[in-house]
Amino acid sequence: MRTFLSALLTLVAMVAIVVALPSMWAAERVVDADGFADVAAPLAHDPQVQAFIADEITEQVSSRVNVPGASTLIEPFAKRYTQGQDFPADFADLVRQQHSWLFDPAPAGGSQEMQLDITAMVNRALKSANLPFVTSVPGKIEVPMAEGSGLDAGRYHKVGQQITTIGYIATAVAVIAGLLALLVARRRGTVLIALGL
């Protein structure tokens, strides 16, 4: 009877471990905002991402100042900013905005289109440029994401909660079942090997 119970508990612990590992990884690296930002951090050094954001900064400033050829003047400074040391932290903030949009509860009656606030990026690029006709842009600069992209507000809120809950429950079941299997077992070494310890 002890052998059967130990085997059953070991099997339960093994299944729980198989469920817990990917669930906890997803909870820590996708559902958690800081983990999500850490996973996305290498994109800040991607030349295509840098070029895209530099173009967006240039376009946003050019559309807000009445200076002929402003985009030509601003573009090199925007590119230098996206390749500089301040950009990764600002990019992480942008990623956190996206994460909040997708994983936080949807705002009641608010816009259902994702908009990213790039005001800090624009003003930092302008500050480094030291141009006489513009030093900062007043107000918020929000850039809408593409419509129809499936990036609805709060789209992954419930899923994120479920993944986190499954991860914690599976971890608890794995620990409890593993300890009980060790307590009941006649051959504890076999149980440890089966659990991968």
Score class of each variant (00 low, 15 high):
residue 1 M to N: 09
residue 2 R to P: 03
residue 3 T to K: 12
residue 5 L to F: 13
residue 6 S to E: 07
residue 7 A to L: 14
residue 7 A to W: 08
residue 9 L to V: 04
residue 10 T to D: 08
residue 12 V to T: 14
residue 12 V to A: 14
residue 14 M to R: 06
residue 17 I to S: 13
residue 17 I to L: 15
residue 22 P to N: 06
residue 25 W to R: 07
residue 25 W to V: 15
residue 28 E to I: 04
residue 30 V to H: 10
residue 30 V to E: 12
residue 30 V to K: 11
residue 32 D to P: 03
residue 33 A to I: 07
residue 35 G to P: 05
residue 38 D to I: 07
residue 39 V to F: 11
residue 42 P to W: 02
residue 42 P to I: 10
residue 42 P to R: 05
residue 45 H to F: 07
residue 47 P to I: 07
residue 47 P to D: 10
residue 49 V to N: 11
residue 49 V to M: 12
residue 50 Q to G: 03
residue 50 Q to A: 10
residue 54 A to F: 04
residue 58 T to C: 07
residue 61 V to W: 02
residue 63 S to E: 14
residue 65 V to Q: 02
residue 67 V to A: 08
residue 68 P to Y: 03
residue 71 S to A: 15
residue 71 S to V: 03
residue 72 T to F: 14
residue 80 R to P: 00
residue 81 Y to Q: 04
residue 85 Q to L: 13
residue 87 F to C: 06
residue 90 D to V: 01
residue 90 D to Y: 02
residue 94 L to S: 06
residue 94 L to G: 11
residue 95 V to Q: 05
residue 96 R to W: 07
residue 100 S to W: 00
residue 101 W to M: 10
residue 101 W to N: 08
residue 102 L to P: 07
residue 102 L to W: 03
residue 106 A to G: 10
residue 109 G to W: 04
residue 112 Q to P: 02
residue 113 E to H: 10
residue 114 M to S: 01
residue 116 L to N: 05
residue 118 I to G: 04
residue 122 V to G: 09
residue 122 V to M: 09
residue 125 A to Q: 06
residue 125 A to K: 03
residue 126 L to H: 08
residue 136 S to Y: 11
residue 137 V to W: 03
residue 148 G to D: 09
residue 148 G to W: 05
residue 151 L to Y: 04
residue 153 A to R: 06
residue 153 A to Y: 01
residue 155 R to W: 00
residue 157 H to Y: 14
residue 161 Q to L: 14
residue 161 Q to W: 03
residue 165 T to P: 01
residue 166 I to L: 15
residue 166 I to E: 04
residue 171 T to I: 06
residue 172 A to P: 07
residue 173 V to A: 04
residue 176 I to T: 10
residue 179 L to K: 01
residue 184 V to W: 00
residue 184 V to P: 03
residue 188 R to F: 02
residue 189 G to F: 01
residue 190 T to F: 11
residue 190 T to A: 15
residue 190 T to I: 14
residue 191 V to I: 15
residue 192 L to I: 06
residue 193 I to D: 02
residue 193 I to F: 13
residue 195 L to W: 05
residue 197 L to Y: 10
